[in-house]
Design a protein around this nucleic acid. Structure first.
Lengths: 226, 226
DNA sequence: CCGGCAAAAATTGTATGCAAAAATTCTTTA
DNA sequence: TAAAGAATTTTTGCATACAATTTTTGCCGG
């Protein structure tokens, strides 16, 4: 996989090295990746257009941060979009994809039991990715992934932050239930379960913020004064 | 409104001066807007991340073009997203917004009667924009507008292309019906009518392509050999 | 001790130059 | 004439330089 500069910088955000509110210094990023400021700027601007980074004229770009209301709206919207994907996937997925979905749930079962948080994060991406593909609509897939990307700096923290033991069992079970509905071709049920799943993730995330508000390595929620 | 370079270049695409498949030459764009290539490149990359322009390594960027299948999927996805906005707007719009919606339909009535195509295009944007705002969800609004942006090079052609008399009456009537449902607070009906409206626009657009396939000033549909 | 102000440092925005790749034109040959 | 290939021009990608602005630092008075 040819890791572009854009992807490398995005990874700093997605892997949690840069957290919401953190500044992106063009000079140091250029030095870090062994290029000049020009390509770094281009990459940052692209990530700005994708909504992962906030571009402020004449000021340093920062990792985009949301306040609680914005985060809640983002999850509500994502719930609807993922529900659309799930409903379509239930009807349109082909046999090979259904097999992969089944296999993924089995693997995920194991990961959840071992409480392997970093593998669980990977699985989460793959699970939703399968449904995005299964929906057989490139625009829906694009929209779903763009939306997911924007909230990832927050949702990934649940899995990656040290010494915070997020519950892996419940999301796994919800994934399994959604998969079951999809495999049964029950679009209605798949979309309902998906909406509930995303809503539940938001609740877990809000609880996470309440629990970790005092920690300096937690992602910053705009408007939370601590 | 400070028109940024990004917006200026986007306008070339949205107003139809640059059509899908057309190349964007950095040097001539720089000369045209009286700046150097550097800011032009940054703007182009941003528009690439927004999906309006296709960035190809070491090759000129081009206005993004879709084939018929892609266009159809894009409209299907947009139909669902706009339907979500309409449903929420029906429930959440405040009184001031409802008044503006009513007023906009009245103005639009007049424009449709006068067959003022360029004003009709403006109205179309404003109508959907009101519903995006009315949905009271910034992520849904963002998603809806990002989606709309991507297909605009095609849908705008219906309104802007010389000597093609698109039917303005039907879309106006559909807008009016949707507005009525929204104002009545009928989310279910608003979303159903919205889906039908978008589906109808796709049909008109496909007919438009069939009718104008031979014209060199028509937007290019990928895969259509002419 | 701290708030305000000036100087210094750091950082962004843009222009410019050059190497590398791609597109175009021109030439040669079958 | 058409195809192939070489030479030329165009165009992109990146580094670098510098002006403009912001941020930080250091200093002073209250």
């Amino acid at each position: 996989m040819p890791h572009t500069l854009r992807q490398k910088i995005a990874d700093l955000v997605l892997k949690g090295e840069l957290k919401p509110g953190d500044r992106l210094d063009e000079h140091s990023l250029a030095a870090r990746f062994g290029v000049s400021r020009t390509p770094v700027r281009e990459a940052i601007r692209q990530l700005g257009a994708s909504g992962l980074i906030e571009i402020r004229p004449r000021r340093s770009a920062v990792v985009r941060s949301f306040d609680r209301a914005e985060l809640s709206e983002a999850f509500e919207a994502m719930g609807e979009i993922e529900a659309l994907c799930a409903a379509r996937a239930a009807v349109r997925m082909n046999e090979a994809e259904r097999l992969r979905l089944r296999a993924l749930i089995a693997t995920s079962e194991d990961i959840s039991a071992r409480t392997d948080r970093s593998a669980a994060l990977e699985m989460d991406f793959e699970f939703h990715g399968l449904l995005h593909d299964g929906a057989r609509n490139w625009m829906l897939k694009t929209v779903a992934e763009e939306t997911r990307l924007k909230i990832t700096p927050y949702s990934a923290a649940l899995f990656t932050m040290e010494s915070y033991n997020a519950d892996l069992e419940r999301p796994h079970r919800q994934h399994a239930d959604i998969a079951e509905a999809v495999l049964a071709g029950d679009a209605e049920r798949a979309s309902t379960l998906m909406r509930e799943h995303i809503a539940q993730v938001l609740i877990s995330l809000q609880k996470f913020f309440d629990d970790t508000a005092a920690r300096s390595d937690a992602p910053k929620v705009k408007g939370d004064n601590r």
